[in-house]
Amino acid sequence: MTIYPSDGGTLTGTPDKDYNILWFTKACLSNVLRLDQYIADAVDANDLELVAFFQRAQHDSRKGAEEAKQLLAARISSAA
């Protein structure tokens, strides 16, 4: 595994670990929305295998977003 050096938040003003969890949450929620369209396209094509695949992917993205939100909430409350 390649390890990339951290800028320590110098560029963004936010420590990377904080930015990373925020980015991950946003990416998961964005995937949930995008997958709605993919599911609709698969339904229109009557491709039930693809519908099920995209629904599983959407479920996993929702789960990732929820876990990340819980982690953020815990970190915010402990920092206060």
Rank of each mutant, 00 (worst) to 15 (best):
F24K: 11
L33D: 04
R75N: 09
S77A: 07
F53V: 09
G13Q: 03
G8C: 03
L72K: 09
L50H: 07
L22A: 12
A73V: 06
T25Y: 12
A73K: 10
T10F: 12
G9L: 04
K17C: 11
A27L: 07
Y38M: 06
N46W: 01
T2S: 10
Q70C: 07
L50Y: 00
L48P: 01
A27N: 11
K26M: 07
D18A: 11
N46Y: 06
I39T: 02
K69Q: 11
D16F: 06
A57K: 11
L11S: 03
A57E: 11
N46E: 12
L72D: 04
L11P: 04
S6A: 05
L72S: 02
R56P: 04
A73R: 05
I21A: 00
N46A: 10
N46L: 03
Y38W: 15
A40L: 12
T12Y: 07
Y19L: 14
Y19C: 03
L48S: 13
S77Q: 09
A68S: 14
D7C: 06
N20R: 15
K69A: 11
K69Y: 13
L33F: 02
V32N: 04
N20W: 14
D41T: 00
D60W: 08
D60G: 02
Q55N: 02
Q58I: 02
A57L: 15
Q55D: 06
I21K: 02
A42M: 08
A27Y: 09
T12Q: 07
S77N: 09
Q70K: 15
D18L: 15
S78D: 09
A27R: 13
S77I: 12
T14M: 13
T14A: 10
L72C: 02
D47C: 00
T12S: 15
S30G: 08
S30L: 15
K26V: 14
I3G: 00
A42Y: 04
A57M: 14
Y4Q: 10
Y19F: 10
S30N: 10
D44F: 08
L22P: 00
A52T: 14
S30D: 04
P5Q: 08
N20T: 12
I21C: 00
